[in-house]
C-alpha cells in the first residue's frame, strides 16, 4: 500500500534552496532562523515534535538521498550516539557555538571586530565565501550573523550527511540539537 504524498513530503527541497541561495547571497542565511524558531514554537504550543516528524527539510533530505542513489545503509547507529549524555552534551556544545557566533556578531556591531567574509566549517576550517557578499548596504553585523549562521547550518548538514552514509539515513536526527530540545520540551510538558 502506497501512501499519498503530502506537500510536506517535498520539503527536502528546502535545504537545497537554502544552501543555493546562501552560496550566491549570504544574507539568505537568515532564512535558516525558521528552522530554529518554528520547532520551538510548535513544541511550546503543544504540537509535540510535529516539526521533526513532518516539516524538517533536512530530515527529509537525509531520507531521500539514499533512496535516490539506491544505497541505503542498514547499520544502526552505535548506542553512544543516541544516549542522553551524548545528545545533551552535543546540544550544549551546539548552543555554546551558537552563543559564540552571536558574540562575534556583537563585536562587529560594537565596532570591536571587523567583518569576516568566510564560512567556518566544523567550527575550524575557514572557507573563503566573499563572492556571496553581494549586498554591502546592510550593517556589517547583519552580514556577520549571516556568515556565522550559514556556517552552523552547513556544518550540521555535513555532519548529517556523514552519519547518513555511515549508518541509517536519519541518524543525524538522533542527536540533532533541535530534536533534543523539542523532545526535552515535550517531556517537561508531560
Amino acid at each position: 500500500m502506497k501512501k499519498t504524498k503530502k506537500w510536506y513530503d517535498y520539503l527536502w527541497i528546502w535545504p537545497i534552496v537554502y544552501f543555493s541561495l546562501g552560496y550566491f547571497n549570504i544574507l539568505f542565511a537568515w532564512l535558516g532562523m525558521i528552522d530554529f524558531i518554528v520547532p520551538l514554537i510548535i513544541a511550546g504550543c503543544g504540537g509535540g515534535k510535529a516539526f521533526c516528524n513532518r516539516y524538517c527539510g533536512r530530515g527529509k533530505l537525509f531520507a531521500v538521498i539514499p533512496k535516490l542513489f539506491k544505497k541505503e545503509n542498514k547499520k544502526v547507529a552505535p548506542g553512544w550516539m543516541y544516549s542522553n549524555i551524548f545528545r545533551y552534551g552535543f546540544l550544549i556544545f551546539f548552543l555554546t557555538m551558537f552563543g559564540s557566533m552571536v558574540y562575534q556578531t556583537y563585536l562587529v556591531f560594537a565596532g570591536s571586530a571587523s567583518l569576516k567574509t568566510a564560512v567556518k566549517l566544523f567550527w575550524t576550517f575557514k572557507v573563503p565565501w566573499k563572492r556571496a557578499y553581494t549586498v554591502t548596504s546592510v550593517p556589517a553585523w547583519v552580514t556577520q550573523f549571516s556568515y556565522g549562521f550559514y556556517s552552523l547550518m552547513l556544518t550540521s548538514t555535513l555532519i548529517g550527511l556523514i552519519v547518513m552514509a555511515l549508518y541509517r539515513p536519519r541518524t543525524w536526527c538522533t542527536f540533532c540539537p533541535m530534536g533534543t530540545m523539542t523532545q526535552g520540551i515535550c517531556k517537561l510538558k508531560k
Binding site: K49, N53, R54, G59, Y82, R168, C173, C176, G179, Q183
Partner: peptide, 8 residues
Amino acid sequence: VSCGACLD
C-alpha cells in the same frame, strides 16, 4: 528519540 523516520 521521536525523530519521525518511522512515521514516514
